[in-house]
Write a protein that binds this DNA or RNA. Structure first.
Lengths: 340, 340
DNA sequence: TTGTAGGCGTTATCAG
DNA sequence: CTGATAACGCCTACAA
C-alpha cells in the first residue's frame, strides 16, 4: 500500500540509474570483494547523488538481524541509579552502529497470546537485550528468554543461560569498605538501611556488612537493621523508627537515596549529620555529592559499557560470556565523624 | 539465511496448523470483519497454542509503518531537564502500543552519503519523531525532515512545517513571574544568568525579564546579565564575575543548574542565599528542592505527554497540529528574602 | 467467507 | 565479475 508524499529511494532506483542489477548494488553496499572497482565507483556515485541509504527494516527482515538492542527496565527511564548506566550503553552500542529500542509498550495482550520479553524481542527482531533493575519476584518471567536464542545481559541480576551474562558490582566489598572505614573512625555500633533481599546487590551488601561487623567485633543490633526499600521516603521512616529506640547506633550504612532521606529527616528534627550520626551511603548517585555524603561508589557508566560489550560479544560468538564483576570505591566526603 | 536455534513461529505455520490460508490468519490478527466466527476462533486457538505473535519487522515493511517513534536528543539521555519529560513520552506512547527508538548510532557515514535525521527515520521506518533539546546553531539540519512526510514534534523549539508541531513552556511568563515575585519582596536591583539566545526558552525568558524589569521600574545593569550556559559550573563563573563588581544586584534570576552552582559558589566564599543574595530559578529540576530553591516550574512530565499526543494526532490526521504552550508556575521555597 | 498472488526493500545463492 | 531469482514474514487487492 503506497503512502502519499515522497518515496524514499530504493536499491532498485539506484540499480536502474547505475545500469546494474540490484544484486550488484547490494554488494557494494556491503563491501563485498568480488566486484570491479570501476562499477563500484559508479554505483557509489549514484548512491551519493540520490542520497541513498538501504532500508534497515527490509535489511533486518532479510538478514534476521536488526542492529537494534532492546532495553528493558522495571522502573522508568529516570531511575536515579540506572539513568547513569544508560549513557554507557548508548555510547558503546552507538559506536558500533546499534540503535536502542526502549520497550515502552505496556499494553495488555489482546488476542490472549502471552507477550513476554521473548516475544517482544522476536517481534522487533532485536539482536539482543539488556535488562536493568529487575527484582527477585519477577525471576520466573525470564525463563523463556533465557532458554531462547536471544542474547541477553542483565545488570544487577545474577542470571545465567546459554546466551546470557550479567554485570554487577562487588557489593560485598562495598559493604566491607563502608564498615571498615567506620571502624577506623572509632565507630563500634552500626546501623543498616537498604533494599533487603529483593535485589541481589542489597543482599550481598547485607552479607558483607554482617560479616565485617562480626569480624571486627562491632555491634549491629536487630533493631538497627532496616531492609525494605531504596527511596528517600524510606529514609524518613528509618529515622522515625530510630527515634523510638533507647539507644542509637553511632553510624548507619545505607543506600544513597535512603541515606539522603535520613539526612533530611534528621535535619528536620534538629539533628545533624555527621555530628549526631555518621552515615555512609552506597552507589554515589548524582545528588549524593550535593549532600556531602560519604559513599561507596559503583562505576555506573562503566557498568553500561561493560554490559554492552558483553552483549556484543555474545552476539558475535553465539555463546555465553563470563560475567563481569565491577570494582567499587569509597568516596570520602563529609557525612562521617570520628568517635572520640 | 537461517540462523541456528529455534525459529519463531510465522504466519505460515499458523495457517498450516489451522488449515486456512495465511490471508485468513492475517485477517483475524488485524480484526477484520468479514470472517466466519468459527474459523476465527479456530485460528485464535492455534495462535495461542503456539504463542504466536506477528513479526513487527515484516509487518512494518509491508505496511510502511512501524509503531515506532524515534527520539532524538542533542545531549545524552541523562540531561537534568529532559530526563523528566521522557517519562511522559514513555507513558503516553507506550499506552498506544508504540515503542521508542532511541537513535544512538553516531557513526560517521562510510559511503559518503549524508545520513541525517530524515534518513535515520526512513531507515528505521519510524512513524514519527520527537526532538529534544536542540539549539539554534543546528537549525539547518532540520530542513530535510521538516519538508518530508515524516511527522515530527519538537520540544523547546518553535519549528513548523506541513507535518510538524511543537510544545514549549510559556517562558516569557516564567520570567515575568520571577521578577514580579522579587519586586513584591522589595527587590529593585535584578541580575540574570541563563543560556542566552542559543535556545528559544532562554531567549523568551530574557525578553520577559527585561520587559518586566522595565515595566516595574527596576534596575538591571548590563554587568549583571550573564548569558552563556545552563550548567552548574557556569554558576561558579557568574559568582566569580560578580565578585569583581562594586555593586551587586540584590537578587538574581537564573536557570536552576546555574542557580545551584551559584548557591554552592557563594557558600564557598562564606556568603549565604538568601541572606546575601536572593535567587529565583527556572525549571524546577529534580535537585532544586534539595537546595530549597524558589523557582518557576515547567511541567516537564506533561510536556512529554503533550508532545506524544501532538505526534499521534499528526500521524493520524496527516497534517500539522496546533503547537502547545504549557503553563508555568512559581514554586516558593527558601532562596529569597524580603528587602527591608 | 476464503484463498491466490504480488509487493514491501534487502540479502544471498547460484548460474552465466 | 555480474545478474536472475528465491527467500525474509506479513498485508492486501482481487478472484473464487
Amino acid at each position: 500500500m503506497a503512502k502519499q508524499g515522497t518515496r524514499a529511494t530504493t536499491i532498485d532506483d539506484i540499480a536502474k540509474k547505475a545500469n546494474v542489477s540490484k544484486a550488484t548494488v547490494s554488494k557494494v553496499i556491503n563491501g563485498y570483494s568480488g566486484i570491479n572497482e570501476k562499477t563500484r565507483q559508479a554505483v557509489l556515485k549514484v548512491m551519493r547523488e540520490y542520497n541513498y541509504w538501504p532500508n534497515t527494516t527490509a535489511r533486518s527482515l532479510s538478514m534476521q538481524q536488526s542492529y537494534l538492542v532492546g532495553l528493558f527496565m522495571a522502573s522508568e527511564l529516570n531511575n536515579s541509579f540506572f539513568r547513569e548506566v544508560i549513557p554507557g550503553i548508548e555510547k558503546t552500542l552507538g559506536a558500533q552502529g546499534y540503535d536502542i529500542l526502549y520497550f515502552a509498550d505496556k499494553r495488555p495482550g489482546n488476542t490472549g497470546v502471552s507477550f513476554g520479553y521473548l516475544e517482544k524481542c522476536r517481534d522487533r527482531r532485536v539482536d539482543g537485550a539488556i535488562f536493568l533493575s529487575y527484582i527477585r519476584d519477577e525471576l520466573a518471567e525470564f525463563e523463556p528468554i533465557l532458554a531462547s536464542d536471544i542474547p541477553t545481559v542483565f545488570v544487577d541480576m545474577t542470571l545465567e543461560g546459554p546466551l546470557t551474562s550479567y554485570v554487577i558490582s562487588d557489593n560485598y566489598k562495598s559493604a566491607k569498605l563502608a564498615v571498615e572505614y567506620l571502624h577506623s573512625l572509632g565507630h563500634r555500633k552500626i546501623g543498616y538501611a537498604d533494599g533487603g533481599t529483593k535485589s541481589v546487590p542489597a543482599e550481598k551488601r547485607y552479607q558483607g556488612l554482617m560479616d565485617t561487623v562480626r569480624d571486627l567485633g562491632m555491634e549491629c543490633r536487630p533493631e538497627w537493621i532496616f531492609q525494605y526499600s531504596f527511596d528517600e521516603e524510606y529514609g524518613y521512616d528509618v529515622v522515625n523508627k530510630l527515634q523510638q529506640l533507647d539507644e542509637w547506633p553511632t553510624a548507619v550504612v545505607a543506600q544513597d537515596n535512603v541515606a539522603i532521606g535520613m539526612i533530611r529527616a534528621l535535619r528536620e528534627i534538629g539533628k545533624s549529620v555527621p555530628d549526631d550520626l555518621s552515615i555512609v551511603g552506597f552507589d554515589d548517585i548524582e545528588i549524593s555529592s550535593h549532600y556531602n555524603l560519604t559513599t561507596v561508589r559503583q562505576q555506573k557508566y562503566e557498568m553500561g559499557v561493560a554490559a554492552s560489550k558483553l552483549l556484543m560479544k555474545i552476539i558475535l560468538n553465539h555463546k555465553a560470556s563470563k560475567p563481569k564483576l565491577m570494582d567499587t570505591e569509597l568516596i570520602i566526603r563529609g557525612s562521617c565523624k570520628p568517635i572520640t
